[in-house]
Design a protein around this nucleic acid. Sequence first.
DNA 1: CTAACAATGTTAACTTTTTAACAAAAAAAC
DNA 2: GTTTTTTTGTTAAAAAGTTAACATTGTTAG
Lengths: 210, 210
Amino acid sequence: MKNLPHKTIERLSQYRRALLICLESGKTHIYSHEIAKIQHITAVQVRRDLMLIGYTGTLRKGYNVKELIDLIGEIIDSDEGIHVAIIGMGNLGRALINYFSGKRTQLSIVAGFDINPDKIGNTMSGVPCFGLDDLDRLIQTLDIKIGIMTVPADFAVEVADRLVRAGVKGILNYTPKPVNVPKGVYLEEYDMITSLEKVAFYVKMHNDEE
Amino acid sequence: MKNLPHKTIERLSQYRRALLICLESGKTHIYSHEIAKIQHITAVQVRRDLMLIGYTGTLRKGYNVKELIDLIGEIIDSDEGIHVAIIGMGNLGRALINYFSGKRTQLSIVAGFDINPDKIGNTMSGVPCFGLDDLDRLIQTLDIKIGIMTVPADFAVEVADRLVRAGVKGILNYTPKPVNVPKGVYLEEYDMITSLEKVAFYVKMHNDEE
DNA sequence: CTAACAATGTTAACTTTTTAACAAAAAAAC
DNA sequence: GTTTTTTTGTTAAAAAGTTAACATTGTTAG
Ligand SMILES: NC(=O)c1ccc[n+]([C@@H]2O[C@H](COP(=O)([O-])OP(=O)(O)OC[C@H]3O[C@@H](n4cnc5c(N)ncnc54)[C@H](O)[C@@H]3O)[C@@H](O)[C@H]2O)c1
Ligand SMILES: NC(=O)c1ccc[n+]([C@@H]2O[C@H](COP(=O)([O-])OP(=O)(O)OC[C@H]3O[C@@H](n4cnc5c(N)ncnc54)[C@H](O)[C@@H]3O)[C@@H](O)[C@H]2O)c1
């Protein structure tokens, strides 16, 4: 299951999110076109993705929701859970902790870090906040593999470097400042302004057409 | 400038973000490979994108930072600013308002909406919070074109429908619940868990290789 | 003054991703 | 019991996106 396309990985995560909702509502089977509708893509694409992971549904009955959830889990989750840290317990950091907590058993946020003495020592939504000084030590002792960066942009580069040095293998950077990581560390960056500007661009385009 | 690739639009927004930082630091010119380094892409891609928007730099001097910022603005910004609303003034909504406010003159968040009576009537980072009842009316009177959804997932579909009915032309959905919009309304969805799971997947992959 | 260099701009090749086309087979309809 | 329908799984084609190759041309060095 090595060479799954990047886009397929993203979609598998999204399929699972949708399937979990279906499961809750008591649905046991689902058609490719139903998944497609939810995700705003085509049914062919869903079937192709499932083909790639080797899942085969039942003709005329669709896919078994429970089974598919489990299979997606086998592919994208790690066997032993992955520990995650959030660096920067400000507005966004707290919002994220709040959102993530309890969502995925395989991905647990085990520590937050900040430099504000008022925040250090507190617990937010079950996640303890430590000082930056403890970063290196705790990443090692808690076996933290992924760091989510929500510090002010000016500290982004410095924090990323420290995370890498401490041994983190993945970084999710929500700072608007791009950072560099060595080979072997996976980096994902997201800036909400880019998304908003993209929406604005297509809104404008559509407007101009009229 | 109609048929720019979607990916190019995203990158233009990112180039501008980087260029603005350069401008502040006093840099007047920049090479394609410098932009590329910042964005973790290749110099060829930068040049190709700039070719598509018809900007030509100076041989051996690179691109004029100021000029390029302005040109990107002409392409992705609207002539008259676009008004944006945030629906759901919770953790994430407030974080976004805080982050966006004052960042782009062409994109201004002019209203927030919530159902919590304690929040209605307040102002957060300069953005007034209104009740949901005023949504339709205010979207029209304030000429709001884009809605950012940060309500609890269970209300996502309902809120999206109302936004569409009220005349919004773009929706940025941060809820983990996919919503549907009619043709003519541009929809962008983002779920942080998908990003995190993607990072986790590649971290796992890399681990397994060893 | 000429050669080497360092940058851009563009065409062409390649890779990735999506979509279309269709065979196969279970279920439903008649 | 045969035909039609519906849905999957797969191969092939198309489209989108990226990278490579290279011509061009100021600039610097000798
Ligand atoms: N707020 C948003 O919606 C939003 C959206 C996208 C990106 N961002 C970016 O995310 C980052 C955080 O945004 P925010 O709204 O949470 O800001 P914030 O100011 O509320 O939070 C930043 C936190 O980081 C802490 N901090 C500062 N320096 C630190 C360091 N060196 N190490 C560890 N912690 C440190 C601060 O004490 C504070 O608690 C910013 O870079 C912002 O641009 C924010
Ligand atoms: N917190 C995060 O980091 C994060 C990340 C990604 C996505 N999300 C999603 O974003 C949404 C908001 O997250 P949050 O952490 O801000 O939650 P929150 O509970 O802090 O905020 C939700 C806000 O929406 C308001 N609200 C409830 N129903 C409403 C309605 N019908 N119309 C308008 N307002 C309404 C509530 O009063 C509250 O103020 C959730 O769907 C969450 O899953 C959150």
